[in-house]
Design a protein around this nucleic acid. Structure first.
Lengths: 334, 334
DNA sequence: TTGAAAGCGCTAACAG
DNA sequence: CTGTTAGCGCTTTCAA
């Protein structure tokens, strides 16, 4: 009625269905479907009319009905190695948030399931047979996890971190970041650089370590690696170990900012000054790095995650790992 | 075949349908459906048989088909005021991650849409008519947003922050946190306590400010409020303003840790010592608070978000705001 | 190029 | 209490 403005009316009106569009355009449902999806032959005139009425009616295909018939799924699920309780915090949250932003406009949702490192098979198989699953993004990927991807999931699974011949992968340029950080330390005069690494079982963290190794070797400096993990506790322990083993250490690279925080604590306890006695670097460029004046490398988690989710939806092929760039952010600590 | 273990076979087997279960149990689809969903009358024997075969076949109802016929939707969407670019970072990510954990086991996904403060109507109406939307969680809720919730969304919309007569709401106990923090400062001898608040348009942040006001008034101390926002820049500006207006300020409460970081910077620049000259407190208890020895209050974002999502799925009624507890974490800064 | 018809897997009236 | 029937909204053969 005239005194109602569109907005109010819309509110009650049930969403238009394909049937409505077809009727409005004077064609059959099939034709309307073809016209809208772009599959199959449609005459130009029909195409125009259908598109027109669809627009007028504000028609949007119901993703649920579509998913039912196409067996497409309605959500992308992030499968994350649950052992990395440390990583699971901010890292996983950011991945999910970035993924949600990609999925939402497509009418999809995002979900998350934990995968125990010891038994990746079962959960992945459950995902494979779950008809709501449009695709799977592996996070904190291990080789065992990749091997456990069921054939039924091939082509709709991607990995953040390491990939394989069959699963596409996405990650930040860990190697470049590791190299640049090491080179920065060398350039600023550090000669006995130690590195506290991530958990040994996480292959994607190896890349930074390898880059560090190559860079110090190239500079003719000693390689000083201490295995760690992604939390402050590992940083603290790692730095303590490094100091005990190599008391003349003049720089500590940490695999992440959280780790670096632990390193800083250990150094403070040991009475070493930063950066006077020992330079310290992190990685991830978290807010905490800025707040504590920690030199770090950017980690565009959102970019990586968005690319991964787009990749899984677009069914990209597995051709090596797609790396997102990282930049060194120099602050007072190094 | 004998040399295949179950796991391998499962991989290829198409998921069992209700039809399969019904046939296996020797009943009709309807009976099987009733037995499994618990709706409608079923004989004990039928119930047992259906459940049994369902278990054997590893049957799980296809949420897509179910959603289609029940018009239930397949995802919970978080509608967030996009103006709060500051808040959108870690806060929104944590809400989404927590929500995903609740939704996933239900076969649902989670999504996120931005809502401009100036025009909350359109996006909410789009959600109302979107058949994939099982429920909506409002984040950074404003009164305008609550008013814009379409009738079609009533009963499947909840809010994190402020609520209304019709929309249930969930939040951390901002008031309690504000009161306890203020009281802590008073107890430790502070007498001229200023507070840097959140963005004026965000009602849920008012509760902490009110609690501060009441607590200082109860102690016979002056009320010193500086409007702010959720980022370090506002904290810096706020503290600078406070110092200019009330040079004898001996404590600054910030509405959040990020804000407190800015406050600390401003104080450092002004040559004030913390906590010697001025005590500083934050809120949220982020990792950065621990790293910078900042006294703060816990903010169980995950609890609040999980409760909100559970609430929307369970269609809880709007009876006041459900508060999650916050604890004061005393560190060196206050 | 088009339309009729047959489902996707499930739920929900409605008779029996 | 149970089975039959009729869809949910969409895609997709298959004839015409």
């Amino acid at each position: 009625v005239w005194y109602h403005h569109g907005v109010q009316d819309d509110d009650a009106a049930p969403p238009a269905t394909l049937e409505d569009v077809a009727r409005g355009a004077g064609v059959s449902r099939s034709t309307a479907s073809r016209a809208l999806t772009g599959t199959g032959p449609v005459s130009d005139s029909a195409l125009r009319r259908v598109r027109q009425t669809a627009r007028e009616l504000g028609y949007v295909a119901d993703p649920v009905a579509r998913a039912l018939v196409r067996r497409q799924g309605t959500r992308v699920v992030v499968a994350v190695t649950s052992d990395a309780s440390d990583l699971s915090g901010w890292y996983l949250s950011r991945v999910l948030a970035a993924g949600a932003r990609i999925c939402t406009p497509e009418g999809l949702g995002i979900g998350v399931v934990p995968v125990r490192r010891a038994d990746p098979v079962r959960p992945l198989q459950a995902l494979a047979r779950d008809r709501t699953v449009a695709g799977v993004v592996l996070v904190n990927t291990t080789p065992e996890m990749l091997a456990a991807v069921p054939p039924a999931l091939r082509g709709r699974a991607v990995s953040i971190g390491v990939g394989s011949d069959t699963e596409p992968s996405f990650d930040v340029d860990n190697a470049g970041a590791g190299r640049r950080t090491t080179e920065h330390l060398v350039r600023s005069g550090r000669r006995r650089i130690a590195m506290v690494t991530g958990p040994p079982w996480l292959p994607c963290s190896w890349r930074a370590v390898e880059a560090y190794r190559e860079a110090v070797e190239a500079a003719g400096l000693p390689v000083r690696i201490v295995p760690g993990g992604f939390d402050p506790a590992h940083g603290d322990a790692g730095a303590t170990t490094a100091l005990a083993r190599w008391p003349d250490t003049d720089a500590v690279m940490a695999i992440g900012d959280d780790v670096a925080l632990g390193v800083l604590r250990a150094l403070r306890r040991a009475g070493r000054r930063v950066p006077g006695d020992v330079a310290v670097t992190g990685f991830d460029d978290l807010p905490v790095a800025d707040a504590t004046d920690l030199t770090s490398g950017t980690h565009p988690v959102e970019d990586v995650a968005a690319a991964a989710v787009r990749g899984v939806l677009a069914r990209v092929d597995a051709e090596g790992t797609r790396f997102s760039a990282s930049e060194l952010v120099v602050r007072a600590s190094a």
